[in-house]
Design a protein around this nucleic acid. Sequence first.
DNA 1: CAGCCATATCGATGAATGTCAATATGTGTG
DNA 2: CACACATATTGACATTCATCGATATGGCTG
Lengths: 116, 116
Amino acid sequence: MESLQILEPAVDASCCTPCGNPAMDADEAQRRALVFKALADPNRLRLLSIVKAGESGEACVCDLTEPMDLGQPTVSHHLKVLVEAGLLNREKRGTWAYYSLVPGALEETAGLLTSL
Amino acid sequence: MESLQILEPAVDASCCTPCGNPAMDADEAQRRALVFKALADPNRLRLLSIVKAGESGEACVCDLTEPMDLGQPTVSHHLKVLVEAGLLNREKRGTWAYYSLVPGALEETAGLLTSL
DNA sequence: CAGCCATATCGATGAATGTCAATATGTGTG
DNA sequence: CACACATATTGACATTCATCGATATGGCTG
């Protein structure tokens, strides 16, 4: 169970793809594909959406399991994938685990697309 | 071989997710996940990047096969996935097939993220 | 028309992935 | 400490997917 690489903020902060440069190398592609892999599942997109739509900006697993027509272990698995992709934050308070969007992560990922 | 749904421009043109709405339903998630599935492969990201970086904004399969350390059938397959996702355009001229970015498609996909 | 070239499709194969049931971990409560 | 509860992990299974070799399609040229 090696943990996936966490998306570090500096990855493309220095504008590594200004207009008209010689395309991306294989390593860079590998790294960027990790985030999109995490987004490539309908249930994970819904999880992100539900977390974002929540009042407090966070949700615990129980809140997420109910509307998802999935078992609790499966939801837990998806949340782990989203955390490892750098999209969600996990904070444990008592028995509950609260998940929230990593600030700016979605915007940064969107930037990966427009600056391809 | 049922063709994947092509992303139609009107899908979210009417701002189906204004700030703070009640999260996305399963169908919507399914539809949106199709584009991210297409982006969830390093080789496809590179293909997009190479096409975009090209002088004329287009590239034929032979131009794309060479730098990709992949066989021609595999590159052809990836290109098909990208076309079906609505990200690439295919234009056949003579024996060659030229692929180009669908204008606005990347930006629209980026919008799917920021307006989750 | 025969043959070459660029590209697409097919069929098979191994790897990755989503899902579940069972179980483990860890925390609050009696 | 024992139990209940929320969440995570494990192991198994079915499905999807990336890749390849072989072959098909379709256009150009002699």
